[in-house]
Nucleic acid binder design. Sequence first.
DNA 1: CCACCAGGCGTGA
DNA 2: TCACGCCTGGTGG
Length: 304
Amino acid sequence: MLDRATLTPDAGPNLGSSLDAQADWCADYEVVRRAIAFITEAWRSQPEAEAIATAAGVDIRTLNALFRRWAGLTPKGFLQAVTLDHAKRVLAGSGNVLDAAFELGLSGPGRLHDLFVTHEAMSPGEWQRGGAGAVVRFGFHPSPFGTALVMATARGLAGLAFADPGGEAAALADMRARWPAAQFEDCRDATAPLVRRIFDPTAWQPEVPLRVVLIGSDFEIRVWETLLKIPFGRAASYAALAHDIGRPTAARAVGAAVGRNPIAFVVPCHRVVGSGGALTGYHWGLTRKRAMLGWEAGWRAAAA
DNA sequence: CCACCAGGCGTGA
DNA sequence: TCACGCCTGGTGG
């Protein structure tokens, strides 16, 4: 098992927590997004790196540099990371997701690339009672997966959404609709530190866990808690999740609950795929789900 | 690989 | 009660 010291900014993707890296994130993601869209559409013809670069609107050298910076992998490695084969490889076996994680030595304290999270769960009723007049502060920030919308309460991180260019208003409306009684305040200064930390694996450490608030039904909370057990760079199926929470026949209901996860990326709903490894859906777009799995694959490769 | 189907289940209206 | 989903396993191309 590797320790965090091997993950210096030089060894890993992007530039740690430097502000320059943050400024580059969205520009990089635009190219990544175009590359993934092209690969997804043209995978049958096994496109060359050259063709991918053209489709992404950059030259091949730029493409190489960009992928190294963005996720520490080559375009070829990236190509592999967004295929069905890769999804199957990272798919933990059926059965208990947590047990599978421990068997693989990827779970437990000190595991690699774990965004350590402590959570507090609230039912919608509790939220409404205790949160009458609750203030939710939000801000838009660059991230490796496009513009991120971060929502925070005094109790911790409550929401994380994504927006493609021009989709900021829709993302905000989506989030606001989840907590109709709350007051919202645009306050990027409050959310900026969260973003820096969330998207920089070199900043993840167990000593200072990230506090999150999960607001949902009992069933949803159980599903979301289980998502937090899926190791970085791996995947679980909806059926395995259903099995894990003791409702083996409720895979579809699990899918719906996963889809309602308010804290994208941090609660890793992007690590849930169909039983056969297919990426069946993602609230913030399948392209973004592929990007996240590819990014995690790159970080794992860089650390290994 | 695709299309379609039925069984399945928690949610919100 | 009902339609709706980030489902799944089976059938027939």
